[in-house]
């Protein structure tokens, strides 16, 4: 899939933002007043900033409200509802915390649950897609959720939780990569099943339908070199998991260490997210010969 900056920024930042909101809603840390203001400002900036970034991906953002209508079937619609509800709940909670010095516990719990649900909904948008075998797995929500919560925990300065979550996120990430690498084959999607020509023999794209590019190729057929991907995986893992853990363990807890840890986390997560998209192969690539040869570049 095309690693579009808008979706990468969206998923990483809003994930982080809702992760932080989850902790804030749970009262971890229990903050009020100015301190609360800074925490919530950061959380909202991330969550809303991410959501805004996602609208850059839209062809007609002015109609975005329509996205609320199909919650019965569409994870994207559900995400719209859940993120809005989460923001409203946490907004009220934040208002109370910042201006009224009240920690409205129950509202916080609700907001935290909605925030977690938002991250899950976002991840289900990807996980539900049969067309992208790498994503179409229960590990995908777990992957996005653990990362989001780990980041949130760092920002919320919940070192112990953060460490635990980072370890889990790291394991999930590795599993997601390792299992993901085999998903396409396991599903049995081949150019022969795509074309139905397998009864005759082995098929190969001879001529694409057009010599230029098109929306599908730009959006869904992206090929990354294997070596390049391996290198990026190492970088992602080191920055996203190893370094934050090291920082949290080795440096005294505080703003500085949290900032440093989150910086590493962000670098790593952006790399991981880039790979999340770039390495995900859409079955439509089969029609363009993307698997049998590297002929079609994204």
């Amino acid at each position: 899939m095309h690693p579009a900056p808008s979706v990468i920024v969206f998923t990483v930042l809003s994930g982080l933002g809702f992760g932080l909101l989850s902790f804030l809603g749970l009262g971890l840390p229990q903050v009020t007043g100015w301190e609360a203001f800074f925490y919530f400002a950061l959380a909202f900036a991330l969550a809303v900033g991410g959501l805004v970034a996602s609208t850059f991906h839209l062809g007609n953002p002015q109609r975005a409200l329509k996205a609320f209508t199909q919650w019965k079937t569409s994870w994207l619609s559900r995400e719209a509802w859940l993120s809005s509800l989460a923001l409203v709940a946490m907004g009220l909670y934040a208002f109370a915390a910042v201006f009224l010095d009240i920690s409205a516990g129950l509202l916080g719990w609700l907001g935290a649950a909605l925030s977690v649900a938002t991250v899950v909904a976002t991840s289900m948008i990807y996980a539900q897609l049969m067309t992208v075998p790498r994503w179409n797995h229960w590990l995908t929500p777990l992957h996005l959720l653990t990362l989001s919560l780990a980041g949130g925990a760092i920002l919320a300065q919940q070192s112990a939780v953060a460490l635990a979550l980072l370890v889990v996120a790291g394991i999930v990430q590795i599993l997601h990569w390792v299992l993901g690498d085999r998903r396409f084959e396991e599903r049995g999607h081949t150019i022969e099943s795509a074309t139905g020509l397998g009864d005759i023999g082995a098929a190969r794209l001879f001529e694409p339908p057009h010599t230029g590019t098109n929306y599908l190729l730009k959006e869904m057929v992206h090929v990354v070199g294997r070596k390049h991907a391996q290198k990026l995986r190492v970088i992602a893992f080191v920055f996203m998991i190893v370094l934050p853990i090291a920082v949290l363990i080795l440096l005294p807890q505080g703003i500085v260490s949290a900032a440093l840890a989150i910086l590493c986390y962000l670098i790593g997560t952006f790399a991981s997210r880039w790979l999340f998209f770039a390495e995900a192969e859409h079955v439509v690539g089969l029609y363009y010969g993307a698997r049998s040869a590297q002929a079609v570049a994204g």
């Binding site: 899939m1 991906h57 839209l58 062809g59 007609n60 953002p61 109609r63 975005a64 329509k66 996205a67 569409s74 994207l76 948008i125 539900q128 897609l129 049969m130 067309t131 992208v132 929306y215 599908l216 959006e219 869904m220 859409h282 079955v283 439509v284 029609y287 363009y288």
Partner: peptide, 16 residues
């Protein structure tokens, strides 16, 4: 008139 151009349906379609 109702489409926001999110592209998700294109992602969901196996056939391009």
């Amino acid at each position: 008139d109702a489409c926001i151009g999110c592209g998700l349906c294109a992602w969901a379609c196996p056939y391009g």
